[in-house]
Write a protein that binds this DNA or RNA. Structure first.
Length: 645
RNA sequence: GCCGGGAUAGCUCAAUGGCAGAGCACCGCUUUCGUAAAGCGGGGGUUGUGGGUUCAACUCCCAUUCCCGGCUCCA
């Protein structure tokens, strides 16, 4: 009998039975076999040396592809676990050890009293390298589940036993052995430990067993592994670059914002950060005018009655800042929606007023637990470009379309940030009528399709009060953040008994749409800062132009230029310091100022300046009046000088 | 909140129980300069905070606040 193998190009080859994917790879070319670590068999990833089924599609997985790297990292996790076991003895109990983006981790419990910290990583890493050096084959065994449970018991591995008993349904389970280390694992793995060519252990953290806070906390060791040392070095360089772009770093260096111990989780925007904040707000307000939103201002502090009506008192109280006012319970608001319902209900509403779009930039306070606070991305006090749309059910479609269009304009046209949409549908626990949900989900789906926006469906991931579309925005380093959101709400209008009078003279329940474009201004500024690496486009730059006299003799002329720029409404700075020109230029480059205007004798004679663009150098001499016209045009266009560093 | 690490001048970091230091920034003087760092000099500290051990604490111990990396949470 022969095994028939179909290759990705459609060709069919025949091999003797018992052939492995490795044999197939070798038969194609030795080089391919050497540069590959596993194979996809009928689309499922398999070990290289597992015998193939009689008839199958085989796709060789090369080591430098995403699935290949995943296999390498999974194997690296085993190698690391084996190294820890060698160094700390058989008393170490192992939890999960999966590959993750760019690396892997393994959760483990050290024997009583053994402390493990980052300082211990080099020792473990050295042991990993010995295991790699030894080039042990990864040997797979498929055994009856009971047999594996027995072996794991013998090895003193309670977490493995628990996994087998609770999570593995199959009658058999697989174990892998590399050298002296054996582990329960689905696989696949690289053929031998030597195929993990570059490994580096990166950090040590705590992690709850199965992510559940009520479980024991294990020690998690993180590492990264690559198919070559060069790839590892490139990765490390990328991490270094990421650190330079970190908004906390740039916020400090560029004097955008600060924090203080006395108000954890709340930012101080310094003058330069406040400029960015206000420009963003002005931008959103301008769009609101075009798109029919009415801005309101609402209270910060509300009686608990409001939260009881909205349901927050029962479901969100732990996250609210509570205080007593006149012997009664009050809270700083964590969200705007309830106040907007009060506005809606302020008087009788007619269908003629719908859709009613209420926008609000008021501060919100959420009592996030301390451990999660981080820079501008997780704060306790923040503002959103929040709005709620009250509309009739037959207006949902047009409103959703309008908001998706808004998102596209903001992220694609203005900020040029790639984004991905997620449609989340009805969860198991929900309020409202199923038919309404189905109709609404169909609308969201249809509008997304028409919009040409790429999206994924997260079935069952919607809020209990309605389906939603979230937009993940990736910064320049590919990290995803959720900023924009569009959520339907069938719940709050019900709880507040919101009504409008229809054309038929009867009362109807409006649908509420929660939506934000930038999301939290704080988080948006964090992502924006990293996206631009601090080099903000002209319209957002805290200082747009720096006037630089070549020497003290040109000071008077520079002052005139500076005054003209300020009169024209530009954010300009002048450098009258006693430094050399190149030192001034360097300082402005470091501050990422978009335009530097050098004033020398030649320019003074013709009422001009020599323009230097950030990171581009000298771009020529231009008359001051003309420069002002150009700058104002570029600012209005919002896209000028937005090239990233 | 939990695990691990950390906090020293405005910033980045040194000082392993014995006189708290460097570079950058800042201030002053000299220099008057053409596109990414001129030279010299000066000021700057309750070593996060509170307690303890010690003849002596940045250093060791306890507590606490905040920050960082994760976990978790994200009506």
């Amino acid at each position: 009998m022969v095994t028939k193998v179909t290759l990705p190009d459609g060709s069919v080859r025949e091999y003797p039975d018992g052939v492995t994917a490795l044999d197939v790879a070798k038969s194609i070319s030795q080089g391919l076999a050497k540069a590959s670590v596993a194979a996809k068999i009928n689309g499922e990833i398999w070990d290289f040396h597992r015998p193939l089924p009689r008839e199958c599609r085989v796709e060789i997985v090369k080591e430098d592809t995403p699935p290949g790297l995943e296999v390498i990292r999974h194997s690296a996790a085993h190698i690391m676990a084996g190294a820890v076991r060698r160094l700390y003895g058989p008393g170490v109990k192992f939890g999960y050890g999966p590959p993750v983006e760019d690396g892997f981790y393994y959760d483990m419990e050290f024997p009583e009293g053994a402390k493990f910290s980052e300082d211990d990583l080099p020792r473990v890493e050295a042991e990993c390298k010995k295991i790699i050096e030894a080039n042990y084959p990864f040997v797979r065994e498929d055994l009856p589940k009971e047999e594996v449970i027995r072996r794991m018991r013998e090895l003193g591995q309670p977490y493995k036993v628990e996994t087998l008993e609770k999570d593995i349904q199959d009658p058999t389970a697989s174990v892998y052995t590399d050298g002296d280390f054996i582990d329960l694992c689905e696989g696949p793995h690289v053929p031998s430990t030597g195929r993990v060519r570059a490994i580096k252990l990166t950090k040590v953290t705590g992690a709850y067993w199965k992510g559940d806070q009520s479980n024991r906390m294990l020690t998690r060791l993180y590492g990264t592994a690559w198919h070559s040392d060069k790839a590892l070095q490139e990765y490390l360089r990328r991490i270094e670059e990421a650190k330079k772009r970190d908004h906390r770093r740039l916020g400090q260096d560029l004097e955008l914002f600060m924090f203080h111990d006395w108000s954890p989780g709340a930012v101080f925007f310094l003058p330069k950060g406040a400029v960015i904040y206000n420009e963003l707000l002005a931008f959103v307000r301008e769009e609101y005018r075009k798109r029919g939103f009415d801005e309101v201002q609402t209270p910060q502090l509300f009686n608990k009655s409001l939260w009881e009506m909205s349901g927050h008192w029962d479901h969100y109280r732990e996250n609210m800042f509570l205080l007593k006012v006149d012997e009664e319970d009050f809270s700083l608001k964590p969200m705007n929606c309830p106040s907007h319902l009060l506005i809606f209900k302020h008087r009788r509403r007619s269908y003629r007023e719908l859709p009613l779009r209420i926008a609000d930039f008021c501060p919100l306070h959420r009592n996030e637990i301390k451990g999660v606070l981080s820079g501008l991305t997780r704060v306790r006090k923040f503002e959103q470009d929040d709005a709620h749309i009250f509309c009739a059910e037959d207006q949902i479609e047009q409103e959703i379309r309008g908001q998706i269009d808004f998102v596209k304009y903001v992220y694609r046209d203005v900020f040029k940030m790639p984004f991905q949409a997620k449609l989340s549908t009805r969860p198991p626990k929900f309020v409202g009528v199923i038919e309404t949900w189905n109709r609404a989900e169909a609308i969201l789906d249809r509008v997304l399709k028409e919009s040409g926006v790429e999206y994924v469906v997260n079935a069952g991931d919607g809020a209990f009060y309605g389906p939603k579309i979230d937009f993940d925005i990736k910064d320049a380093l590919g990290r995803a953040w959720q900023l924009a959101t569009i959520q339907l709400d069938f719940n709050l209008p019900e709880r507040f008994d919101a009504e409008y009078e229809g054309a038929d003279g009867r009362r109807h329940r409006p649908v509420m749409i929660h939506r934000a474009m930038l999301g939290s201004l704080q988080r948006f500024i964090a992502v924006l800062t990293e996206h631009y690496a601090g080099s903000f486009p002209l319209w957002l730059a805290p200082v747009q132009a720096a006037v630089v006299p070549v020497s003290e003799k040109l000071e008077e002329y520079a002052r005139q230029v500076y005054a003209k720029l300020r009169e024209a409404g530009l954010r300009a700075e002048i450098d009258l310091s006693n430094e050399r020109l190149s030192a001034k230029i360097r300082s402005f480059e470091l501050q990422r100022i978009p335009v530097m205007l050098v004033c020398g004798q030649r320019e003074a004679e013709s009422g001009a300046v020599a323009v230097r663009e950030r990171s581009r150098g000298d771009v020529g001499v231009v008359k001051v009046e003309e420069l002002i016209v150009n700058l104002r045009r570029d600012i209005a266009a919002k896209t000028a000088l937005s090239g990233q560093a």
